[in-house]
Design a protein around this nucleic acid. Structure first.
Lengths: 198, 198
DNA sequence: GGTATTGGTCAGCAAGGTTGACACATTTTT
DNA sequence: AAAAATGTGTCAACCTTGCTGACCAATACC
């Protein structure tokens, strides 16, 4: 594989740390004691990486008077068409009121469509309108280019490692939510669109 | 170079299961073309992972009436004692006023010490006070446990991959800033502490 | 029919970003 | 010596996106 790292940083320096604590671990587990510098590096990487990961979409969104919160709605509604408001709240981990502030305008501006649930008519099933899907697409493509570059530079093995570590950084709740997200999409909502009071 | 197929997009989601997180990695697998599902997964992982990564410190900080912004100041000042206000602004990528809102109280509450630069007396060199260093330590330890768990679950190869991908997600500016951060610390500030104007 | 659940909405608060303008000490340039 | 540029602080005003508490309407469940 191409693209070896520019700097061969931390590799193999873990035993030193073990010697400090005097706790020799099994042979393959030498990377498992997290020395100070390694965590500091992880903190830096996550800070800079996450910031630059979101920078592209943020720019597009700003032109439309939207923010990251809107992107998250577009993303998760796009990922699970027909998701209920309650499910979306659980995924985002915010309050109903915080969601309403971004969701209501998005419905009014025809980015998101609300339909009544056909089993439970109290529910509001959310889907992207064509307009919403198109915006989501733009944001997605921008981010794809960025991530693609990172993946290409890092190589496939690294990508798999990245996924595993990120997954490990998630708590149990996020893990089960992710699991649900990855499952086959729910059946299409077939309820009638709500009357728009606009 | 692993020159890869350009557009296999519409081919359906056949290998989806393999691409998922816990799945074993096939060595020669072509992960370099970023299919839709792969990027969606990356988005999810970064969203959930980053959120849960910061959750621990956030909790401690909240008890002290601080936020993530304060943590960043503690982190980067701790990482480069004697950093100037201007350098810190460049790293954080925020405006002077935004920084002032968190930094000024932190100086007043004796978390951060300001000294005048000895070469350029206009500069304010920032260092952590013992109180600040202790708080930074607490936050650090909390986060270390969390990251350590993730690293342990993922294994050393994955950790290296994680680092490479995160590095790839950074833009050029962030990369050179990170490089500077990793270098040996600047000489200790020896200027006189500023008189605090009550 | 009574209660629980799902969702919408109003009012108000806080953190942490933004911009623009200005002040001041200090350093650098002319 | 005077002027310009630099590093920092600060004031005023604004935005986004979190939060809480309260209350209402429609619907489902027992």
């Amino acid at each position: 594989m191409p693209a070896m790292p520019e700097r061969t940083e931390t590799k193999g320096a873990e035993q030193k740390a073990e010697a400090q604590v005097g706790a020799p671990v099994g042979a393959g587990r030498n990377l498992l004691f997290l020395r100070e510098e390694e965590l500091r590096l992880a903190q830096d990487l996550l800070f800079f990486g996450y910031r630059d990961f979101t920078a592209g979409p943020d720019q597009i969104l700003a032109e439309l008077g939207m923010g990251r919160a809107h992107h998250r709605v577009l993303h998760f509604v796009g990922r699970r068409p027909g998701i209920t408001v309650g499910e979306l709240l659980a995924i985002l981990g915010i309050t109903k009121q915080s969601l309403a502030r971004v969701l209501t305008p998005m419905v009014e501006q025809d980015y998101v469509l609300q339909t009544t649930g056909r089993n439970d008519r109290r529910q509001r099933l959310l889907t992207l309108t064509p307009k919403g899907a198109e915006l989501e697409r733009r944001l997605f493509e921008r981010q794809r280019e960025w991530v693609m570059r990172a993946y290409r530079e890092a190589g496939p093995i690294a990508v798999e490692g990245f996924r595993r570590v990120m997954h490990g950084l998630m708590g149990p709740e996020a893990r089960s939510q992710l699991e649900r997200l990855e499952q086959p999409a729910a059946p299409r909502p077939r309820g009638a669109p709500l009357a728009r009071t606009g």
